[in-house]
Design a protein around this nucleic acid. Structure first.
Lengths: 347, 347
DNA sequence: AATATTAGTGCAAACGTACGCATGATGCGG
DNA sequence: CCGCATCATGCGTACGTTTGCACTAATATT
């Protein structure tokens, strides 16, 4: 009646559980459970004894069982855009590190371009994530809908919530406007925009701010090209620009994110255009690669680390108290001046 | 006695469980459970009725509870190197997509440079991962040790297992040798190597193969620089090379991975060196950015998609049958010839 | 017609943890 | 010396699912 018949093959290591420890210590499981979380009700020596025992046996609590019992999983679902955009790659690194600081783990649900599949989004719910971070530019409102319907807090990063969820983003409109102001000060007069994914608030706002800035100076866009938020898209746009006739040739190109800006730059240079003497290129994001001497991209930098921090703040707050209203945080970006755009004359 | 007193606040959505469905359908929970997985023992009409009910109620099985009962979590722990190296970024994207195809989710445990923290590696065990994929070049043997001690299958990707675990990698030695052969055929005579992280099998093997290739031709390395597996490290190495005297100046630089090679290239060009006329640069990995016109890097490409596939094959096989012996898979890389290295004379 | 088989379903235990409540053992004031 | 508060610990149940076994009723077999 005492012979626990170890269900399966024994070869590896039957993981010790609270029950195991309880048997070893000759106490009840509840005592072990409490002792391990330093419940003051358990006498100090029993606590110490059990702690040592746990240490020696290599006991690890089963987070999944704990969830079942306690309600919180400590898991955050993460939906991410294409890793070919270094902005998202770095966001991932930040998110993992900062989540770990708070004792949270990231369950990565989707990465890459393209919409999120049904089975994938279901995983979000099946694994009882406490909350969800959505940082894909693509049409992921579906994932947000699913979470919202189930009462899972959602925070959108770098993208304003269309329907549900809080969001954290850079002030894209102001950023676009600042880019416009900088280019106008540099006496540029003919402007092209290389657009990312249409219908996404992030890039739409950047364009809107930019155009508003131009409009205030009585100017407007002379070219508007698709860039698909990829390097290749940017390159294609750059090629197109390079072969425009003199009449249409812009003297400044605003690519709505850095990865496209790099493509534009490479294409223009490959076509023999001198940057920034003949044409200025300016991006958005300030990904690490923009700072490389080969690119030296002038760009509007997003405060990525802070954005991730605020996102987690919002998320944990709404996990604590689901009744909290949704919240929108907008952070100011900062223009990073490098050498891909002509500078304002130092008057 | 029948009034389920909905434990918490009701406002959001009390998620339906098998129990809920059972009550609604007027059957036992076991019937629901079986019906939902199309157990042929349940009569077709009951099955259909329950399926509809589940659909209507928006039922989602609790994967965590299932784990507790069934043993498998469907979770794979993932330890990853720095996302500043696009090689790892792309590996992540591949891994997520391919894992999803197999119904597995990635619990991302660590990303970035630096060793893995204790609390982090514990998460690996607490969340009952079925297996673990380790793709960090850093000193993560600790994570491997922990898993091995607990009987969690481990597969190392792009890195040969030192002690435990299976591994999948490119044939780095052969790759290094092939690079040497290519450069020798291009009549290069003075060779520099930019090394990554020392003590990591991956880069060590590349260097060994390269040197062996040189040795067969009676040649040897003339420079050996640290590159730290970062762009910045490569850039620094490139600067150093550029300012060497003529006597020491290499005519070929082999950077042990692409991210460093890009740094070397940018540094050499910034210093006015003509690539590949004066000096050839060759990398390893074939990350997407290497193909950009601005770099046009000749490199030894790793079959990344296949590496991830084999890794998951190995992992799932050992999850099925833990008694399986550890296995090492070595895949052949392929030289991608672009324009950063002088070509062999077309004799 | 009696029994063996099968289909369809329910019961209950198990997984590992947490926690409310009950219990036993002390200490102390009256 | 008894009753009462306090402390330390145990018991039992809950969380949501799976699964072995038992059970009933209908069908097939002899």
């Amino acid at each position: 009646m005492d012979t626990a018949p170890s269900r399966r093959s024994d070869p590896p290591h039957e993981r010790p559980t609270v029950r195991t420890l309880a048997r070893m210590a000759g106490v009840a499981v509840s005592t072990v459970s409490r002792a391990l979380k330093n419940d003051p009700r358990i006498s100090p020596d029993v606590r110490r004894r059990i702690a040592e025992l746990a240490q020696r046996a290599g006991y690890m609590p089963n987070a999944l069982a704990r969830t079942l019992s306690g309600g919180r999983s400590g898991l955050i679902g993460f939906v991410l855009g294409s890793m070919h955009n270094p902005f998202y790659a770095e966001m991932l690194e930040q998110a993992v590190a900062q989540a770990a600081e708070r004792g949270l783990r990231l369950l990565i649900v989707h990465v890459g371009p393209g919409p999120i599949e049904e089975t994938t989004s279901n995983a979000l719910l099946q694994y009882q994530v406490d909350g969800c971070l959505i940082a894909s530019a693509e049409l992921t409102s579906r994932a947000a809908d699913i979470c919202a319907a189930r009462g899972v807090p959602v925070v959108m990063v770098n993208r304003v919530a269309r329907r549900h969820g809080s969001s954290v983003s850079c002030d894209n409109t102001a950023g676009g406007r600042e880019v416009a102001a900088f280019l106008l000060a540099g006496e540029h007069r003919r402007f092209a925009i290389v657009h990312g994914t249409v219908g996404v608030s992030t890039t739409d706002d950047r364009e809107r701010g930019f155009c508003a800035g131009l409009a205030e100076a009585g100017l407007h866009l002379s070219q508007h090209l698709p860039g698909n938020s990829t390097y290749e898209g940017g390159y294609a746009a750059g090629c197109h620009i390079a072969q425009l006739g003199d009449a249409e040739q812009p003297d400044a190109v605003f690519a709505l994110n850095d990865i496209m800006a790099m493509g534009v730059l490479d294409a223009l240079r490959a076509a023999g255009a001198r940057v920034p003497e003949e044409v200025s290129v300016i991006g958005f994001d300030n990904v690490p690669a923009s700072g490389r001497p080969g690119y030296a991209l002038t760009t509007l930098g997003q405060p990525l680390g802070l954005m991730v921090r605020r996102s987690l703040d919002l998320l944990t707050a709404r996990i604590e108290d689901p009744a909290l209203p949704e919240e929108t945080v907008v952070l100011r970006g900062q223009l990073i001046v490098r050498r891909s755009a002509r500078l304002p004359s130092t008057a």
